[in-house]
Nucleic acid binder design. Structure first.
Lengths: 233, 233
DNA sequence: ATCATGTTTCGGAGGTGACCGTAACATCGG
DNA sequence: CCGATGTTACGGTCACCTCCGAAACATGAT
């Protein structure tokens, strides 16, 4: 059994408001400096630095030195998945009066954003829906499958699921992720990550300054329509 | 976005040592009284009562009144999944010197136990392994599939995946769960839950007093060998 | 009705931890 | 070398929250 002490320590680290805000800010998969995270958490840089040291020590956050900056990111996919789990529970407790659609800043988030290492929002859900409707994928609440035709489709775009299709059946299992804005699943895990990084690499999407939202470029609009037949409104 | 406040509240609730211990005690899927949970958490009944009230208020725990007793259980599968996520992160931080095999009490746990609503330990892993080797299932780290032959096998035992095989393809996706004692995945989700409850219903396994461990009955040993060809050592 | 068991409420004591000044410490660019 | 930016260390204050004792409250058994 994972000792209760270790369990409690991790949960306590995630539970303090300033740290929680910083961890949530890191959920877009990017690496941020302590200063940025301090603003995200609403505390002074000194305080944030202390928090980050504890998070790093506990293995929730990893740092990379780059010149004068120290970039902090979530240490592993397991951490991101843990956060998702907590958010799912927190979401069920969502106050009815607290409307989910809040202002224009969230509009971009609901349209397209990153969720740690994969795409979410209407873009992420539309991609998942398209794959299901075309028979390229099957998605159930607990798990998802990318069918052989789906693997081929991605391969034709230059996305190889890095040996995951090794030999035999070209079928890849992956994890679904419940989209908090659409309340429907999109593709996560290795498949979602590969798809997302490909979109960035091809210049189909780019990050919106200071936000987890991403913008679909003109090139991206065209590519998404041609390759996937989807239009993200 | 799930508000940071809600996120932090849930994580804080799970992070306090006494509450964490109580939640972990509930991870076997059973319902327990406040008194039992007080012992599990190492606090007095008054304190436990207060904690349980908060956990219930937050939607982590659900209560059922039954005469003089009030039985508490995890409120949803989402909560159990959240706890699993935290435990996964806590496990990666496992101190090397802290050996995982501790004493005889854990021996029973490592052999067979419940993990919220499904089977774990060598029993759970052996079942999963057998299904994979026989081609009845495919298990990858992120997801798992119960193949048509696996669905048929379970159906022949009287386990119907409650409409999940509805019409079309008789193939059920489900979630894998990383076993902390075996460090390998076993079947979770609806499939794991159905399998587990069937084992209890048939008298193949029974709970060991005051523990999350389960014992395989003589009848169970025989049934597991005949139906699945496995022997749990 | 009375007792016993299990559970909740209340109030006060105690401890832990977050927070911010101030200040020292790295590191890079000029 | 020196300044600018970013990060870490220290000390004191303050608020939150856990915990238990005592006591009230339910429910079922005697």
């Amino acid at each position: 059994m994972v000792s209760t002490a270790a369990f409690a320590e991790i949960a306590t680290l995630a539970g303090e408001p300033a740290r929680a805000a910083m961890l949530q800010a890191l959920m877009d998969g990017r690496a941020m400096t302590a200063g940025e995270l301090a603003r995200a958490g609403g505390v002074t840089p000194q305080t944030a630095s202390g928090h980050l040291a504890r998070l790093t020590e506990a293995g929730l956050v990893a740092v990379e030195k780059q010149g004068r900056h120290r970039y902090h990111r979530l240490a592993s996919r397991a951490v991101a998945q843990m956060m998702e789990g907590i958010m799912q529970v927190a979401a069920t407790r969502a106050v009815p009066g607290h409307r989910l659609t809040v202002g224009p800043r969230d509009a971009a988030l609901r349209r397209a954003r990153t969720c740690y290492d994969h795409l979410a929002g209407r873009l992420g859900v539309a991609l998942a829906d398209m794959l299901v409707e075309a028979g390229h994928a099957e998605i159930e609440p607990e798990a998802a499958t990318l069918m052989p035709s789906g693997v081929d489709l991605l391969a034709s775009l230059g996305i190889d699921l890095a040996g995951r299709t090794a030999g035999r059946r070209a079928r890849v299992l992956c994890r679904p992720c419940l989209d908090w804005s659409e309340r429907r699943p999109h593709l996560a895990g290795a498949v979602g990550a590969a798809l997302c990084s490909h979109c960035f690499a091809e210049g189909w999407i780019r990050r919106i300054e200071g936000s987890r939202a991403v913008a679909v470029t003109r090139k991206g609009e065209e590519a998404l329509r041609r390759h996937f037949g989807i239009v993200v409104t």
